[in-house]
């Protein structure tokens, strides 16, 4: 028994010595690539000071290696055409498909600080849920801009912000103008609508519990701009409501987000099959539509795609019949 312990003690000392010896050899994984700006031929702009959407003043010296911490931010970068500068994205950044070739830095709520630092970015685009890691990145001297759009105008402003921070104002303006034009095309046709012209509708986030988007969400804005009236306009956030409330308010169109996670359309199927909802106008006229959550739930460039889809759901006579 005593000798066993002596053996253990000796092994422990040996392990310490071994560790010291190992450090003398270069065995180990490869070092990160030598850093070069991800793109040549782009003149480094002089330092820019921007105020991000959380009110923080950020000095961006250069934006040649950009890391995005959210799918919406990644989509903005690709839509602006500066994706050659993107060196890091999250596991959930799946649009456009080319984004999967960029190295991943972790999840959406759990980005990996080590991987981000190893990529040596000079600009990181974060969102409002990344408070802690933004603090760490700031402390390490990495310029971090937080995008936090709550409305469609905020999204356009966030694109403008990315343009200024990355020294790509021209691309940002081009993207924002194109988006504004498409938004205007929808808004112009629904501008004068009142009362019964507005289609009673709601946006369903999940079916169990039945969660709808309330009056202070971006979905409310999408519905209004597309010529609709949200049946839970008076409630805030994402209220869970009873089936009886839905039956009583009798929506003419129901829009359901699908694709949460793995392309599941459980909520859509539920809304289309639940027998107790058979009496609502939306079911009678077969106007229960699904929309990809990746398009409508990410506050990025594809929000105009969502708006156009909403418009065709609510007013097919003006915007063409929807594809479903």
């Amino acid at each position: 028994m005593k000798s066993t312990l002596k053996l253990l003690a000796v092994l422990g000392l040996a392990a310490v010595l071994l560790a010291a010896i190992l450090t003398g050899c270069t065995c180990g994984a490869t070092t990160p690539e030598e850093t070069t700006p991800a793109t040549t031929g782009v003149t480094t702009p002089s330092p820019v000071v921007v105020t991000d959407q959380k009110g923080r003043e950020v000095t961006v010296a250069a934006a040649t290696r950009i890391v995005s911490l959210a799918p919406s931010n990644t989509e903005i970068i690709y839509a602006m055409g500066i994706a050659d500068r993107l060196v890091g994205r999250t596991d959930y950044c799946n649009y456009p498909p080319e984004a999967s070739e960029v190295p991943s830095i972790g999840g959406f709520s759990t980005p990996d600080l080590e991987t981000i630092v190893a990529l040596e970015p000079d600009l990181v685009l974060a969102t409002s849920i990344h408070e802690e890691i933004v603090g760490q990145l700031e402390a390490l001297g990495i310029a971090t801009v937080v995008l936090n759009p709550q409305t469609i105008d905020d999204i356009l402003a966030s694109i403008d912000l990315v343009g200024r921070a990355a020294g790509a104002e021209a691309e940002a303006t081009a993207l924002a103008s194109e988006m504004s034009a498409r938004i205007e095309a929808v808004a112009a046709k629904t501008a004068g609508m009142t009362g019964d012209d507005l289609v009673r509708t709601c946006f369903v986030v999940w079916h169990d519990p039945l969660m709808l988007a309330g009056g202070d969400t971006i979905y409310e804005e999408l519905i209004r701009t597309a010529g609709g009236a949200n049946i839970v306009s008076d409630q805030s956030g994402y209220p869970s409501i009873d089936l009886e409330d839905v039956i009583v308010t009798d929506p003419q169109v129901v829009i359901v987000g699908y694709g949460m996670g793995d392309g599941e359309d459980l909520a859509l199927q539920y809304l289309r099959d639940e027998p107790r909802l058979a009496g609502i106008a939306a079911r009678q006229n077969d106007r229960i539509y699904g929309i990809d959550q990746d398009i409508v739930g990410r506050f990025g460039p594809r929000i105009v795609d969502a708006l156009e889809q909403f418009a065709s759901f609510l007013h097919p006579e003006l915007f063409g019949t929807p594809d479903q």
Binding site: A20, G28, A29, P32, D112, E114, T115, V117
Partner: peptide, 15 residues
């Protein structure tokens, strides 16, 4: 300290 999601050679860590 020497192992993590980013590969760093042991002698670099030690140094």
């Amino acid at each position: 300290t020497g192992i993590g999601s980013v590969g760093v050679p042991l002698n670099t860590t030690f140094s």
